[in-house]
Every structure is written in structure tokens, then in C-alpha cells.
Simulated scan of single mutants.
Amino acid sequence: MRKPVVGTAMGLGAALLLTAGMTTASATPPTPPAARAAVQHPVLVDCLWHQRFRPTDFLLACGDGNSILTGMHWTKWNDDTAVGQGVNVVNDCKPYCAAGKFHKYPVTVRLDRPTAWTKHPNVQHFTRMNLTYSDARPEGYTQVMSYPMWN
């Protein structure tokens, strides 16, 4: 007599999972046309391998989170280059990173050298980032810092 109860319970469980899966898929809104059009320009690839277009925040130190761009305002973003202003928030790691303090530095960000992204060859992504500090800068940094972006 227990076999029908177990079979019914398993059947109901499978039906619930199928319904939840269908509901989740149908509840996901389609990508708006404006967002699809925006991706046609080169993108910035973040630490989680997501395409970012004109991000307001961008993590530079993926491993430990000790450097991030915040409050970004982009004045230019085209097929060759992107330029924006924001703040680079950097941990001084004194006496060590877990006990360090974060400091804010105004910065101009320039992205360039777009190329096909290895993960998605039909998507162009910027491969170099230049940070130009307008005044103060983190200890050990030069006025202009250049970083290759991951591919």
C-alpha cells in the first residue's frame, strides 16, 4: 500500500519542479532593444566574465577587492575608446590588507585596444585600461597606471 503514496509524492514533486522551472523561464523579461543595441560597442569584461557597458562601478582587484572604480560617469564610449571619470577606492593594506583603510582618489579612466573576446568571438571588448589620477594617488602608483584587461 505504500508504493502508490511514494509514487504519488514523487509525481507531485516532479510536477512542482517542472512548474517552477517553467514559471522562472517565463518570468524572465526579454532584453530591451536599447540594451541589445548598446552591446554592439565594445564592452568591459568584469571579474565574473560578464559584459559591462558604461558601468557605474567596476572591481579592479578581483582576488581581494582592494581596488574598485565607483561613481563612474562616461563621457565617451564608441568602437575605439571609452572615457569616463570616477573615483578609485583603494585599500592601503597598512599594516596588512585586512586591517587597512580605503582611500578615495579622483581618476579619469580610458579604455582602448578593442579586440574580439575569446569567450564570445563575436563580441568586441576593451583590452587596456588607463587610470589617470588628477591629484593624489595611492602610494607606489604613477600618475598614469595602465592595466591589461582579461580575455
Rank of each mutant, 00 (worst) to 15 (best):
T56I: 11
D64Q: 07
H73Y: 03
P42H: 05
C47S: 09
L44W: 07
W49A: 15
L69D: 07
N66H: 13
G71L: 03
L59N: 13
H50N: 10
D46S: 04
Q51E: 14
T75F: 01
T56V: 15
G63F: 09
G63K: 12
P42T: 08
L44S: 06
M72C: 11
W49D: 15
L60Y: 03
T70V: 15
G63L: 13
Q51C: 08
N66T: 14
A61C: 09
S67G: 09
F58P: 06
T70D: 10
H41W: 02
P42K: 07
H73K: 14
N66R: 15
G65H: 04
A61W: 02
C47T: 05
G65I: 05
F53N: 11
L48G: 13
H50R: 11
T75W: 00
L69N: 04
S67F: 00
C62I: 02
P42A: 10
L48D: 15
F58R: 05
R54A: 14
L44C: 06
C47Y: 02
L48P: 01
W49S: 14
H41V: 11
G71E: 10
F53V: 15
W74M: 04
C62M: 06
L69H: 05
H50D: 09
W74A: 03
D46G: 09
F58Y: 13
M72I: 06
L59F: 01
N66A: 11
R52G: 01
N66W: 08
G65S: 07
D57Y: 05
M72V: 06
H41T: 09
L59Y: 04
M72Q: 10
L44Q: 07
F58E: 05
N66F: 11
T70N: 09
D64F: 04
L48Y: 13
F53R: 06
A61S: 14
D64T: 11
V39L: 13
F58Q: 06
W49C: 06
Q40S: 14
T75Q: 09
H73V: 13
I68G: 00
C62H: 04
T70M: 13
I68K: 04
R52C: 05
